[in-house]
């Protein structure tokens, strides 16, 4: 009897340990006083955390990743919101095909997407590295934008738009007055999902990064190949806390969890 009662909590403990264990190890390693990345940490210090802020390339690649994550996700939403609206409100011929094509970047491995972009777009058209990365990240985030926004549009009755029109609003006005406010949560979820996807994206960025232009994860890999000190762990912890902070703030101020 007791064994049975303990069984479920035990499994639960294992799952949680498996999920957040690696994260805890990284966080512990960032506070190490030793010279190399190791667990358990040797002593306690904030020196690696401090060092993160002094590495020049980290600053540049962090800026680039932030730009791609925010800019790319915003661009994906600007394309994705009208697309989702059209897909859900009008019985367009071929709507299913459009949905599938838009989702392709989720299904196709990133390596292939990156290679294809490099081989058939970047090289032949001489696209700049930054622009190529921006376009690639927009395309990668677009499926999430369309999926998540579509889901919240499906839950929104379309007759409220007609009601708004009958009360004197134009069709476009009705979209901004009654559709947008009601899919706000979906847009926010899509933004967070897109931001995280873009920020953590490795394979596609790997192909498209070039001299002097790197995203954060690519830069971290490059750094680790040369220097094996705990500053990468420190940086990872900082990034993780940043993500947690964003989600927490979104929940706190925008009532994120009410919608997802």
């Amino acid at each position: 009897m007791t064994a049975q009662r303990l069984f479920i909590p035990f499994i639960l403990f294992l799952v949680i340990a498996f999920l957040i264990g690696p994260f805890l190890i990284i966080v512990a390693a960032s506070f190490s006083a030793g010279e190399t990345l190791a667990f358990p940490p040797q002593g306690f210090s904030l020196r690696w955390i401090a060092k993160v802020f002094t590495v020049e390339s980290f600053r540049a690649s962090f800026g680039m990743s932030m730009f791609l994550a925010i800019g790319g996700t915003a661009a994906a939403l600007i394309l994705g919101i009208p697309a989702s609206y059209a897909l859900s409100r009008y019985k367009l011929p071929g709507a299913e095909i459009v949905r599938t094509v838009v989702s392709a970047p989720i299904i196709v491995p990133g390596i292939i997407v990156g290679l294809a972009l490099l081989r058939y777009i970047v090289v032949p058209f001489q696209v700049g590295i930054t622009l190529a990365l921006f376009l690639a990240h927009t395309a990668l985030v677009l499926p999430y934008a369309v999926r998540v926004v579509s889901a919240s549009l499906e839950n929104l009755r379309s007759d409220i738009e007609e009601a708004a029109v009958l009360l004197g609003s134009s069709r476009l006005g009705a979209f901004f007055r009654v559709v947008m406010p009601n899919i706000r949560g979906g847009i926010l979820s899509a933004f967070i999902l897109g931001f995280v996807t873009s920020f953590n994206q490795v394979p596609v960025s790997l192909f498209l990064s070039g001299p002097g232009v790197r995203t954060m994860p690519i830069d971290m890999i490059a750094y680790m190949e040369i220097v094996f000190d705990p500053s990468v762990a420190a940086l990872s912890s900082l990034l993780a806390f940043m993500s947690i902070g964003i989600v927490f703030a979104a929940e706190r101020f925008l009532g994120f969890s009410r919608y997802v």
Binding site: D159, I160, A163, A164, G168, S169, V178
Partner: peptide, 30 residues
């Protein structure tokens, strides 16, 4: 939107993000 015809939908079609007051004020503001 230019007909001056009102329609009360079977589903009511109230705006879920607005209060009762704002729902009623919606058309007047426009």
């Amino acid at each position: 939107n230019k007909r001056a015809v009102g329609l009360v939908f079977q589903s009511y079609a109230l705006f879920p993000h607005l209060t009762v007051y704002e729902n009623v004020a919606f058309g007047l503001k426009l």
